[in-house]
Nucleic acid binder design. Structure first.
Lengths: 196, 196
DNA sequence: GGTATTTCTTATCTTAAGTTAACGTCCGCA
DNA sequence: TGCGGACGTTAACTTAAGATAAGAAATACC
């Protein structure tokens, strides 16, 4: 077992709620470290997803496909959970694909093992609740941004976030589709902002 | 106690998970029926929210305010839960206002009472998880629609949903801001569609 | 190191949405 | 019942984004 990796995960979980050692130990045997090479996939559209990952290193994106075009709607960074979570929850085929943008290191566990913990432990069930609540809060913020801000404002907001350095290293056409605009449009917005 | 109202709520909860009578009875004493007149508010921007409602009758909207302008981002219908849920979760002041669009009848309970149930009962904790997951799934769908569909497609999608009849009775400028466009724009889209 | 591919920018043209304003209709309320 | 305000439509104009294409820059890969 990779102790620093597990410690990293435990710290991340503790941002949601504190687990005592016994509770934490329930998860450990189910975790497995995994490497993904750049461009490898963690979830594939059309296939039901069964796993949840925790990002130790690297970053990933997820995208939907429409009319043959990929629409990137989310990025994952170090310290985040990564999963086609809705597919895990519903058991239906994933509507999205998750791709490694760089070489990545993950801790992976199966969703059904997490469900076992939900069954066995009220505390883990609570973790599941708080995780879903956290997810919902993030999605709500994102949605409000899409409804209330212009593409330019959304881009500035993204740069303001603490992920600016990483964003700058992500291919721009992925960022543009995250913002809901075309790559050409983002390029123009950037040119406009430079002049100011 | 209003038995049909409670039955309606129980049925709605059972869509998430089944409660036995003892579990259900834990909630009942905390519920209270409430009438809201058209234009009355259920949550107010700037004030922390403490309540969760269940809609027995009528419909509501929630909106954010920006530059003095109201942006409607959600509608609530009969059989839905209504709450400034994020404010309840975080304890922070609500960023949104919830307004009755028609006279409404609600069953209301306090979020802190729900939290008590979370503490007392694994099963209720699970309800909280499933509710949050349901919320997240809905928000994800909404977000993907905003990113991948044109305003016209979003409007058609909204009409296709099972709420068409109700949507048609909601003032159009609320619908337009739900779609992320101006009232003028929605009016043009409608004119365009009529010609087809 | 050099070639091929991907990515980003720039330009042109088209299309649609934003803005503002005018007008008609409907509705609530005095 | 009549007045005032809210709502929806239409029109004219402005602004910005989409589509397409071409070229430059960066990157990947042999």
């Amino acid at each position: 077992m990779n102790a620093p990796a597990l410690k990293h995960l435990r710290t991340a979980i503790h941002r949601f709620l504190k687990l005592d050692d016994a509770e934490w130990d329930m998860l450990v045997p189910y975790t497995e470290e995994r490497q993904l090479a750049k461009h490898e996939l963690f979830a594939v559209e059309g296939k039901a997803a069964h796993e949840v990952g925790f990002m130790l290193e690297g970053n990933m994106r997820h995208y939907y496909t429409r009319d043959g075009e990929e629409k990137t709607t989310y990025f994952y960074f170090e310290g985040h959970f990564v999963s086609s979570y809705i597919s895990c929850l519903t058991g239906k085929p994933s509507e999205l694909t998750i791709e490694a943008l760089t070489d990545c290191t993950l801790l992976v566990f199966k969703y059904k093992d997490l469900q076992k913990l939900y069954d066995l432990s009220h505390k883990w069930e609570r973790f599941g609740r708080v995780l879903a609540e956290y997810l919902a809060i993030g999605l709500e913020e994102r949605m409000v941004g899409l409804l209330m801000l212009s593409p330019e404002e959304r881009y500035l907001q993204l740069l303001d976030s603490n992920k600016q350095k990483i964003i700058e290293r992500i291919p721009q056409h992925y960022v543009s589709s995250y913002l809901g605009i075309t790559p050409v449009s983002l390029s123009r917005i950037r040119a406009r902002l430079l002049k100011k």
